[in-house]
Design a protein around this nucleic acid. Structure first.
Lengths: 180, 180
DNA sequence: CAAGTGTGTGAGTGCACACTTACAAACAAG
DNA sequence: CTTGTTTGTAAGTGTGCACTCACACACTTG
């Protein structure tokens, strides 16, 4: 035994988040994930319940990482006003998604919510983050809504590559958003 | 000749927007679009330059419809304050996407921006809408940014089916958004 | 050492799907 | 009527990929 199955699963999930983030659920062959994880395709199918099971597990890992980052951000602003805590969470999130994998994975997941298991995974992820923001920051509904609205705006900015566009409309959309 | 090629193209594009909206670029076979349009798969390939050409053309049609709706909304609020014109545009957009096809197509398009031609089509679409909002509403950068941020929030609400979720966090995210 | 258990793979299998080709029917023009 | 053009399709072709299975190696336990 070179490794335990559980350790392998972690490796595979990291590879899966990256691979799915780039090319999405349907256009990412399991062989690509297996290759990135350094194991055979057959073993990936033994570790996870089909490609769908792999994707759902990867979604869990993705939201785990996001939640952890936001919680860490909140920690630093503990005791401040809701507005300041939200700000700290936003900064922590912005730093986390600098590598784009976690952001793009969310986009990809939202695009395949016609598959019920994935829709449920997405809901579970946002449920976790949203309730945490609501409770921990003590933010009201409008603040929570704004937090997520501008988070979603980042998805557009990154997928459309608006940071590279210097036209006025693009500058307006990206204004104040952390430039990489 | 039962029909002209140009008329067929319009029919096919309508079918394509619907089909791609539901299942996305990679998971939608061209046969599905052809069947929905009532013609053979082979003829779709004659009318468009491959599946990619079809998707890009569908994106054009999608943004055409969105732009038209927003322009019509602006028309009704002509002469009002930027804030009011933005509101009218938002209402027009909300009504338009009640059938979900146009909203879901945008989500699907953003998910396949790793394909350069699609990324360019997405940029072109948002360029058109954003410049119009900026010019016609006379809105400043922050207002334009907010307009699109909450527009993107709708993508999350619809893809995750948050309208059906009655938990507090979901109510916060959907608050004030037109419920269908 | 023998038997059992967990880790790992090579070599398939079957099917879905993008795209092509050869061909046919409708219509137009001379 | 013939020739040419446009609209339309049936029937392939090749390939990529999800998933399986038989088998091999590592390690443990008695």
């Amino acid at each position: 035994m070179r490794s335990t199955a559980e350790a392998r699963r972690v490796t595979v999930l990291n590879a899966a988040v990256s691979a799915f983030a780039r090319t999405g659920f349907h256009a990412t062959p399991v062989t690509a994930v297996a290759a990135a994880a350094g194991i055979s395709e057959a073993y990936v199918f033994r570790l996870f319940a089909g490609k769908l099971g792999l994707f759902v597990a990867a979604a869990g890992a993705c939201f785990d990482r996001i939640a952890a980052a936001i919680e860490a951000g909140a920690e630093q602003a503990a005791g401040s006003s809701p507005e300041e805590i939200l700000d700290a969470m936003g900064r922590a999130y912005a730093e986390l998604i600098a590598d784009r994998d976690l952001l793009l994975f969310q986009v990809q997941a939202q695009a395949v919510t016609d598959i019920p298991e994935i829709a449920e995974a997405v809901r579970a992820g946002y449920r976790r983050i949203a309730t945490f923001v609501q409770d921990r920051a003590g933010a009201d509904d409008a603040q929570v809504q704004r937090f997520f609205a501008y988070g979603q705006l980042c998805h557009l900015i990154v997928t459309a590559g608006l940071e590279q566009v210097s036209e006025p409309w693009a500058r307006a959309l990206t204004a104040g958003i952390r430039h990489p």
